[in-house]
Every structure is written in structure tokens, then in C-alpha cells.
């Protein structure tokens, strides 16, 4: 593992952020590489991630990686960690901007384990402090660095008052492109993102249409599977709900869902089924 310091004042964009960032401490397997930030996207969002948020992250991040982008996030649990994990899983470069000092020893075992994982898989861990503890003011400070490093920001699930919104404010100030993922209007963690879209501060992010194509392919192979597929296209459902809608018994339905899950056609989480993105 290598580690070092970069003079932040030399990085473009950083001159515009306040308070000014003087240095950036980093750790990584291969060292600091300026070219990573030629195309970098920050994926930010709530600590309280819902199942919906996870699925969105699993859609966005691989797309970004395929497009050659570096994925930047804040290594907090929730959306941040999901983004780092998704990026590593699809073989991309990821950068974690810490809300505490790079040498700070008081972090939890989980944070430590993902930090080590990021470094091991060739990512970078970055902070403007050396041994500063993470407190109320350090996290908002961190957000400005993310905005400055990235050239576009994706917001997945964020409340109206949240750190993600601070990142967005900075990104707008710095003239970066902001994408917000729409969410259910009943969910508090989608309030912020929906509002960004409504107030035209961010562009609404929508996935490309691919799912319906797969359905028609499968319809040829198996009618029963197609029924389930059609229902799951629109919403996530439990075994009971599927059984009721298709007028089948739960035991048959359960058996069929098991087989479909095994073959990877559908996914299951906490008893709810959906079509994997």
C-alpha cells in the first residue's frame, strides 16, 4: 500500500471551494493518479438506504463503470457503501472521501473492513485531515471535496436536509451536472431527490429500457414464468401476493419462485421478489 499527500490547490475546481482545501492525504495500492478524475462521478445518498435504493445503485454504478467513470462516494453506511461495493463488484475504480482523518483510529470495524477492501481492490481513500475524528462538522466539509473531485453527481435517495444536499449545492456552484433518481413520493428518503427534480436543480435520471425485451423472450420458453415476470415488472411482490394474483397455491408458487430465483431470472430480498437490474 502506498500513501501520500497532494497539494489540493493545484487540483482544478478546488480554488472555488470554501473553506479552502489545502492538502489531500491519500492511501491506495497504486498511488494517486490524476487521470482518474478526468471522468469521475460522485454517487451519494442517504445512510438509511431502502431496498429501492440498493437496486438503483446496482443499476447506476455498473453503467458508470462501463462508461469509464471513477465512482466517488463518502464511505458512510447506506448508499455510499453500496456504491463502493457495486463499483468494486463491476471492476471499476472507486474513491472514498472520508468524513474523518486518514489516520483516525476510532473507526468501527465495518468501516475499517470496507476501507481495507477498497484499498486492496485498487481504489483510493482520501481525506483532508490526518487524525481528525469524525464529528458533526467534518461530514459537511467532506461533501465539498466530493463535489469538487467529481464532474457529475448522482443522488440516490436523500432527505431534504442531508449531507447529499450539501454535495449537490456545491456541485451546482461549481457548475457540475447533477442527476437525481426519482423515488416514491411517500418515502422520506426520496423527498430530497424528488424535490431536486421538481425545482429543476437536477436532471431526472431514468434507466434505459431493457427489461421488457427480456420478458418477451422468456414468454416463449415458459408461460407460467411469464405470468410471474409480467407481474414483477411493475412492482415487488411477496409469495402470498403472487399466489393470490395468479390464483395458485402458495406451495406451488413458492416452489416455482425458488427455481426462478436459482436460475437468476428474479431476485428475492426479505420475502419480496423483483426483477434484478
Amino acid at each position: 500500500m502506498k500513501q501520500g499527500v497532494v497539494d489540493a490547490t493545484k487540483i482544478p475546481n478546488f480554488s472555488a471551494v470554501k473553506p479552502a482545501v489545502k492538502k489531500l492525504f491519500w492511501r491506495g495500492k497504486d498511488g494517486w493518479d490524476e487521470s482518474w478524475f478526468d471522468h469521475a462521478a460522485a454517487v451519494v445518498g442517504s445512510r438509511r438506504i431502502t431496498e429501492y435504493g440498493r437496486r438503483v445503485v446496482d443499476k447506476i454504478v455498473p453503467q458508470l463503470v462501463n462508461g469509464g467513470a471513477t465512482v466517488i462516494s463518502g464511505m458512510m453506511y447506506g448508499v455510499d457503501q453500496a456504491a463502493h461495493r457495486a463499483c468494486m463488484a463491476s471492476g471499476g475504480r472507486t474513491v472514498a472521501v472520508l468524513g474523518w482523518g486518514i489516520d483516525y483510529k476510532g473507526i468501527t470495524a465495518e468501516d475499517l473492513s470496507i476501507m481495507n477492501e477498497i484499498i486492496e481492490k485498487g481504489g483510493l481513500v482520501v481525506s483532508e485531515w490526518e487524525d481528525q475524528a469524525g464529528t458533526l462538522w467534518t461530514f459537511p466539509q467532506r461533501d465539498r471535496i466530493m463535489a469538487a473531485l467529481a464532474d457529475e453527481v448522482y443522488v440516490v435517495e436523500a432527505a431534504v436536509k442531508s449531507g447529499s444536499m450539501i454535495t449537490v449545492e456545491w456541485a451546482i456552484k461549481l457548475g457540475k451536472r447533477v442527476w437525481a433518481v426519482p423515488g416514491p413520493v411517500t418515502s422520506r428518503v426520496s423527498d430530497g431527490t424528488n424535490r431536486l427534480i421538481a425545482e429543476k436543480k437536477a436532471q431526472m435520471w431514468l434507466p434505459e429500457q431493457q427489461v421488457s425485451q427480456r420478458t418477451t423472450n422468456d414468454a416463449k420458453s415458459d408461460d407460467k414464468n411469464a405470468d410471474i415476470y409480467r407481474l414483477l415488472e411493475n412492482e415487488t411482490l411477496t409469495v402470498d401476493e403472487l399466489a393470490r394474483k395468479l390464483m395458485r397455491s402458495v406451495n406451488e408458487m413458492g416452489a416455482q419462485l425458488s427455481v426462478m430465483t436459482l436460475s437468476g431470472e428474479i431476485k428475492e430480498k426479505d420475502g419480496k421478489y423483483f426483477i434484478g437490474g
Binding site: 401476493e241 395458485r248 397455491s249 402458495v250 406451495n251 426479505d270 420475502g271
Partner: peptide, 23 residues
């Protein structure tokens, strides 16, 4: 899993086929 049941879904759904095991 014993998920939350939305009562309106329950009452508006068609009655279940009789004679099917476990229903």
C-alpha cells in the same frame, strides 16, 4: 416472512381457489 398485509388488498382480491392445499 410474515409481511404486512394491506387490508384493502385482502378484501378486494378474488377469493382463493378452494381445495388447494394450505389456502
Amino acid at each position: 416472512q410474515v409481511p404486512a398485509v394491506e387490508t384493502d388488498k385482502l378484501s378486494s382480491s378474488p377469493s382463493l381457489p378452494a381445495g388447494k392445499a394450505g389456502l
